[in-house]
Design a protein around this nucleic acid. Structure first.
Lengths: 320, 320
DNA sequence: CTGTTAGCGCCTTCAA
DNA sequence: TTGAAGGCGCTAACAG
């Protein structure tokens, strides 16, 4: 056990005082270039790393940020988190990951824990039921994902634009019976917003709407598939890639239907199993990076709250 | 800003000294029941939480543990991690999650970071290339997942037993041509161990082996499917659930084959899309919990290194 | 430009 | 059983 060195040690080793060492460590104040070199050499030689707890205690900032995901096993959230981590670590922050499972209770509980842990900031994957009141007090050091909220920074997806893009694309391909398989409107973005956009698209393109709304799971897609694959439907837009998987299962059992499937999402599996699918994906990684940067901005110079709206990208690899 | 209280404050508030408060906080030493009650009341009333940095500094233990996963988006790893988190948090540990992407370089780098952060322990999702040398020094406070290592605690899966179980099951169902779709032997557990077990099973059951080895991705399963779906093969064992997805894609395009698919893994998607699949799953959540408990054991009372070998469970919902 | 000093909040002797 | 005192490693005045 080499017993970690302290700044006092390296002060002695480089023949200076603690404060000078501290100054070069935090690159603040003026230090004579030569003394600096000398100190840096010693630091390098002994691989000295200042103690975080000691620094935290003194400075009253933990250098920790919390991330509350809805589900640890969500592909989209995972991609976003993967993009955040390197950035945050790189800026010297530790990251605590918590899971809400879409429970507002869990969120407020986690937020309380994060407060107790004195974290410097947080990134929260939000959802419909979450109200501004639940995150009150965090405005200056939190960024929301997916769901915006007045007065808070957030990075969200352009749900309406996505459905619109999908509908237009299918229309251009000649489809005149485009139905929609979605999610219950109680979910604001994935449910209501996307459904509304579908209805609007039908209106705009003068198409007869045919839709069915269920839950997020692929089971729901399978169950509801029959309701949208009829009346001469030639294409269906799915609010979610898992829903599309459900439909494909249905189509596999009902080969008489010749239907084009389009979906929002980016499970690579979907495109692999069913190459004909048309997919629109938001850049989740990109979103994560944006969120992390915005949070960092909040933490360094008090930046104003800002909302990013990410637009999707069409993905029609195989289908002509 | 209510400005956090310190133990000094609550000492004053409860009319005692700092040390007494500290004693009840750490439930150590003898404290008069009455004084204790009084202090606890104040603590409760003000929702007092002692400062972690201050405690860490004094006690020289960070109460942080690191988890290095191979891939953030691995379903199996996610399940395991989900099980660890609550346990660890519950015991007062913060958790840092890092991603290795199967790179030994990343692992040693992360391990170094964890050392610098003075974490108390770590859980590492290991893989073939990882050698004992790379994790030297961690023996007393690390637990490995998936791959065992001499002198270190680990929780692993009984790969050989799993393949054996699958083979026996298929044999009992009357299959006499059972082929194998696996992973390159350069991967010790998923590759070599499972393949060897398949060969052994063939030997034992006097069946002619027919196997093909590729990579972990489902693309590989699709590509190699043709090589194992012939010579009268009636069933194929897949080393991995993703491989099974590849086979199913192939089978979908070659309906002339009537083949039973069995696989190790538990992607719920697989069973949903192809209910006839026979699946053997290790309890990943269970594994995670075990690992967390073992690490906690190491951290509290220096427990001896120990290896857990988890056996799988057959899953044949639909298939008769 | 640099060293000295004084705590940050907590735990741990050491007396009382 | 309890309080006072000391110091963990670091930063931020404050003198030089």
């Amino acid at each position: 056990m080499p017993k970690r060195l302290t700044i006092k040690d390296i002060a002695r080793l480089s023949g200076t005082g603690k404060s000078t060492v501290s100054r070069v460590l935090n690159q603040q104040g003026d230090v004579h270039p030569e003394t600096r070199k000398r100190i840096e050499a010693v630091i390098e030689q002994y691989q000295f790393i200042p103690s975080r707890p000691a620094r935290s205690m003194r400075v009253k900032e933990s250098r920790v940020i919390g991330i509350i995901v809805a589900r640890l096993d969500s592909a989209a959230e995972n991609q976003a988190v993967s993009a955040m981590l390197p950035l945050l670590y790189q800026h010297g922050y530790d990251v605590l990951i918590l899971e809400s499972r879409f429970s507002t209770d869990k969120v407020v509980e986690h937020l309380k824990v994060l407060t107790q842990r004195e974290v410097d900031g947080a990134i929260l994957f939000s959802f419909t039921e979450l109200t501004a009141a639940m995150i009150a007090g965090w405005e200056s050091h939190i960024v929301l994902m997916v769901h915006p909220c007045e007065g808070f920074s957030s990075v969200c997806y352009d749900d309406a634009g996505a459905v619109q893009m999908l509908a237009d694309h299918l229309f251009q391909q000649g489809h005149r019976r485009i139905s929609y398989l979605g999610v219950n409107e109680s979910d604001k973005t994935t449910g209501e917003d996307r459904y509304r956009a579908y209805l609007a698209a039908c209106e705009r393109l003068s198409l007869p709407p045919l839709a069915s709304l269920g839950t997020l799971e692929y089971h729901s897609g399978y169950t509801l598939a029959g309701e949208v694959c009829r009346d001469g439907t030639s294409a269906v837009i799915c609010a979610t890639d898992s829903l599309a998987l459900g439909i494909y299962k249905y189509l596999g059992e009902h080969p008489e239907h010749k239907i084009t499937v389009a979906a929002i999402g980016n499970t690579p599996l979907l495109g692999f199993l069913f190459p004909a699918v048309i997919t629109l994906e938001f850049g989740y990684a990109n979103a994560g990076e944006l969120a992390a940067r915005q949070l960092l901005a909040h933490l360094t110079h008090t930046a104003p709250a800002r909302t990013y709206l990410l637009t999707g990208q069409l993905n029609t690899d195989i289908a002509g």
